[in-house]
């Protein structure tokens, strides 16, 4: 600024005034800073509040309509009745035990099925002939409704915990295998070429390239599989079981205890949401590791 003043002084005193006036005009205006992040944050907050509001509205509406009789509370129950029945069931019944039973068979089946499927899919890298012979059978098994197998599996493994896990595995294993196989098929041939040029043996290419390369595909099967595993476990309990939320729902239905059916449905929804959230967390962690 000092230099500009002296320059202007040489030119003319009027020039100084004009320049100062100009400067003061420019200074008065506050800069508008574009902040897309702040906009995004406020948008997200906004959306969250709306979501909560919609949820509340649904629950309150449900309660009000069943109370004033616009909805028949015999079929639709009501949030307060569901809560009350759940409380009673938790104290006098075996709600907690049922939840543990169902989530236990679901998680065990999910882990075994997904892992087993992924390993099966990865083995297809070893021989193209073996992979292509198996491929149509994989497609058929994937298309087949595995739940239709439920009675057979229950007869095979009994009415205990094992048959529920077996059904959850049956539901998830093919999805796991197909996902891993897609990963295996997409491995960059040049990457394999580089490994061989470095003198790698096949198992080294497999462990150092094929497995990490396929991980994102395997990880993407987790979300689908957790929901499938839960469906498998519940159907297993429907067929024959002494425990579990599925058995509780079936039992409540046969004695026309609609409130208890609703308790089961709500509990399963919450269970499924929690497990889904857990899988999303796991997925994020794994993706960070393998999808740099």
């Amino acid at each position: 600024m000092a230099s500009s003043l002296t320059n202007e002084a040489v030119a003319s005193p009027v020039g100084i005034e004009a320049a100062e006036r100009e400067e003061s005009l420019v200074r008065k205006e506050r800069p508008v800073i574009q902040d897309p992040e702040a906009l995004e944050r406020s948008h997200r907050r906004n959306v969250m509040w709306w979501r909560i509001a919609v949820g509340m509205l649904l629950i309150v509406g449900w309660e009000v309509f069943t109370t004033i009789g616009w909805m028949d509370s015999y079929y639709w129950s009501s949030p307060s009745m569901i809560l009350q029945t759940a409380w009673v069931q938790a104290l006098k019944g075996n709600l907690l035990g049922d939840i543990l039973y169902t989530s236990g068979s679901t998680i065990l089946g999910f882990v075994l099925g997904t892992l087993g499927g992924a390993i099966l899919g990865l083995t297809f890298w070893w021989s193209r002939k073996y992979a292509e012979v198996c491929e149509p059978y994989l497609v058929i098994l994937n298309a087949m409704p595995k739940l239709a197998l439920a009675p057979v599996l229950v007869i095979l493994f009994g009415i205990g915990f094992t048959s529920k896990v077996a059904l959850a595995i049956a539901m998830t294993v093919i999805v796991g295998a197909i996902s891993a196989y897609s990963g295996v098929k997409s491995v960059d041939a040049d990457m394999e070429k580089l490994m061989y040029s470095l003198g790698a043996k096949r198992w080294q290419v497999f462990t150092k390239v094929v497995i990490p390369w396929s991980m994102p595909w395997i990880i993407s099967s987790l979300r689908i599989n957790i929901a499938l595993a839960l469906a498998g476990a519940i159907v297993g309990e429907f067929i024959a079981s002494r425990e579990g939320i599925g058995r509780m729902i079936l039992y409540a239905g046969t004695i026309l205890d609609i409130n208890l059916v609703w308790v089961g449905v709500v509990v399963l929804s919450i269970l499924s949401m929690i497990m889904y959230g857990g899988v999303v967390l796991l997925e994020r962690k794994l993706m960070k590791e393998f999808n740099k």
Binding site: D190, S197, L198, G199, P212, K292
Partner: peptide
């Protein structure tokens, strides 16, 4: 022989150091 292609073929899930020692590791 050592062989290098136009594409760098670095393994994306390995750090640069771990990529550089890949040949020795094998």
């Amino acid at each position: 022989v050592g062989y290098m292609l136009q594409k760098d073929m670095l393994l994306p899930w390995r750090t640069i150091l771990d990529n550089i020692i890949l040949g020795m590791e094998i």
